[in-house]
Amino acid sequence: MSVLAAAADSGLVMSTAEQWLFWTVGPIVVLSASALLFAKRAVVTACSVMLTMVGLAVLYVGLGAPFLGVVQVVVYTGAIMMLFVFVLMLVGVDISDSFVETIRGQRWLGTLFGLGLLAVLGGALARATFTQVIGVEAVSDGNNPGAIANLLFSDYAFTLEVTGCLLIIAAMGAVVLTHRVRLTKKLTQADMAAVKVREGMRLTPPPAPGNYARHNAADVPALDAAGKIIEDSVPDVLRMRGQVHTLRGVAQDLLPAEVAPVDAAPVDVVVDVVVDVVVEAAAAEPPPPADASAEAAPAEVAPVDVAPVEEGDTP
């Protein structure tokens, strides 16, 4: 890397190696960043941005900042973007952004303003005159992290401390923001058993799929002793997706005439991966609204009856 930087010490013109680097990585960075604008699914966007971050890290290294390049990869790609993806998973990985604009003219306005910003920035760039590039090799003296550390713990010591405070506060803030005050007693195993008995629910774990069947795949429902289908035996995710195999498809000979096809099972129930189903049932909360209805209903109305139950922070 220092080789690349040294090649560029000639001043205003990039060295050939740097040109190669720049014109290879630059378009990749821009293209992957454009996914922010055009990718429909958030996960795709997150992955593209990760690529952007890595590309930028490469450029940082090319600019004579290997330490920052590493930090970029570690912090952005490794931590921040992972956090984004984690949150994406938390809120539903397949939530896709509708491109139907709700604010009239906002997209055109955004485009217009983007072009305007590009124009003024380009104008500024065109106007500006730059001095000869000096390069950071001299001050880095072959040990860029060491040089940064020297500066960081001398001139920028106070800033460093303040930033440390900021990080602690941010961590506490995240804890506070995501913390949920328990409104009810924590349920023990005995309590849950009592609830199940009272509600007439199954005490034992659901039967595994494929029991007494020709196939033991997870998408094939189990049969009970009477030969009837046990719906619960198929994982909820598969049922929700409608990927349950019917008996009709796998074992025609075992199918009793009166057994209804499993396809008729309700598919509109979203299984909440965040909230523990049993706890919710014990707290007698209303079932979470279906995603489709939440999308269709006016924004303010649908979630309101859920909010007070979940958001109460003091008992």
Binding site: Q106, G110, F113, G116, L117
Partner: peptide, 12 residues
């Protein structure tokens, strides 16, 4: 987003 648009307009 409207507020952001206003800010951006101001910046421009």
């Amino acid at each position: 987003r409207s507020y952001a648009a206003t800010m951006l307009a101001g910046v421009i």
